[in-house]
Design a protein around this nucleic acid. Sequence first.
DNA 1: CTGAAAGCGCTTACAG
DNA 2: CTGAAAGCGCTTACAG
Lengths: 340, 340
Amino acid sequence: MSAGSEGRRTTLADVAARAGVDRSVISRVLSGDSRLLIRDETRQRVLDAVRELGYRPNAAARTLRTQRTGTLGLLIPDYANPVYAEIIKGAETVAAERDCVLLTGSADADRGLGSYLDLLGQGRVDGLLLAGEMASKEALDGLTADGLPWLLVNRTMRGEARHVVLDDERAAGLAVRHLVELGHTEIAHLAGPSSSNTAQRRARGYRAALREHGLEVPSSLTARTDYSADGGYRAMFQLLDAQTRPTAVFVANLASAIGALHALRTQGVDAPGAMSVIAVHDLPLVEHISPALTTVRMPLRELGRRGVELLSDLGPNDTVKEVVTGPMDVVVRESTAPPR
Amino acid sequence: MSAGSEGRRTTLADVAARAGVDRSVISRVLSGDSRLLIRDETRQRVLDAVRELGYRPNAAARTLRTQRTGTLGLLIPDYANPVYAEIIKGAETVAAERDCVLLTGSADADRGLGSYLDLLGQGRVDGLLLAGEMASKEALDGLTADGLPWLLVNRTMRGEARHVVLDDERAAGLAVRHLVELGHTEIAHLAGPSSSNTAQRRARGYRAALREHGLEVPSSLTARTDYSADGGYRAMFQLLDAQTRPTAVFVANLASAIGALHALRTQGVDAPGAMSVIAVHDLPLVEHISPALTTVRMPLRELGRRGVELLSDLGPNDTVKEVVTGPMDVVVRESTAPPR
DNA sequence: CTGAAAGCGCTTACAG
DNA sequence: CTGAAAGCGCTTACAG
């Protein structure tokens, strides 16, 4: 299919020669230029030549000329976190619908936003989605100064009005309500790291929901996890040592909940008999552990979708603050039950 | 830091004007051209101007000129599969070391290699890593015809000599040996999908290891999973219904093993008392489920690393077949024990 | 020691 | 209806 021997790719000039027209005509036919007046016969010759030669426009040349790359960047902290897997999927789907490439990369403490940007150089992406905690305010202002649109995904930042997030307060509220409706009054929170934006919002939602239901909010009922299973394991031990032991715990993420269940087993505390457990986020796996975990399912794909949609229409100096309103529901399984 | 008001980015011409030299001099200073003879004083003026203006080369222009993008593509079937998360991490690390961007994307039944390539257009990547089963032989030959180097990662393909894989046969052998050393003689296999390359190699390794230890290889002791937890759950039920119930099972991947443990609980079969379970791959999570899963830890990061290393040095017509020789070991936890 | 010039492959305003 | 020309921002062989 491709022209002759490998080595040189087909360019517009090749197609033009074959179709017997100027390069510019090929370009306009392919871009669907409406102001182009062309005989059907000529158009057909052009399209045939394109097909026969397997022509595909050179991305670098097009970008250099148009100053648009057709690429968006997505920076995440960790591929191993299934939360980001879902966000990526949603984002890729919309990007593909819009004939746009999504360039996903990871950054962490070692390799932060700065090193990612060094790699990207200038003009590799038309905009940047930043999911997670790795970007400093200075770095973001640097992006703005460079004229590169960016958008925070799944986090907010003081003094920056460019984010799309989920309703983490509401998720916490749903979890607490589920536990209250089961009859629980001593409801603990296994909170994520205080530096994490989602953790802050889930903790805030937890406290608000307790108050709303007329319950006290003793600080002894909150323990911290770093969002890992190990962290959840250790934090659950803390809760079990508290003055008054809770009968239920709202856990800020899945991995911590799995660690928490482990701690309960270790200590011979029956779940859900002596301790109900509900966590934010859902995965097929949690149906298969014991007890199967009750969760609050979050619209993560929708979050990724909206991220790309908003970023596509965002100028470098625009602002946007959006809370995704996708479906969010409590998936009741075995790990929650009335207190006994 | 960036020059003046946002809108136009700094180009070589801006830097040249500031430093009072020709654009070509700036370019050669930055690229470290050894044949460039330049006074220290001039060099310093150039570097100062670069720094003061925050100049970064335009990627598209450089690519158009050099025909190199400094970008490698990595195509995976599914971000939610932690196996690929590890491969990506290894690949990104090496790519960053080599000042190269890794563009990761996913393709599946709906959006296959073809649509990914359509998005990439021409000249977006210097090479392509393909991890998983989504590429047909025709598509690969198309890449070769286009002069684009590619490499299969974690899979082989008949008639194509361009892959880097793990030693799945050896992993299966280690698992079987662990079970044999515990005293098991009725060892089943919960195999991955017959279409999957890794699944085939693990199944082959399983059979070879049984024979090596002088054990029979009855086909009734193999059941199929689609690599999901649900699949493992269903497949375990099949094994439990077999004529002679095995005392141990070697499971082809983690998710299936978690489903299999669930099936055992459901049927009241004690693990490891009545059934030992060992699976390929390892994750922090499996330490926290009950029973904590015995696994064969695979050098997935090393696989990603080698993928990028090999691809970087690969011409479009070269061949390479490599088995990664990273550390691979049995992590003994609670799910395996002597038969009772 | 440094500069002028060509050209990578496109797109698009303009000319006829 | 179609073509000629300029120019996006680099790199590099060549000239002096």
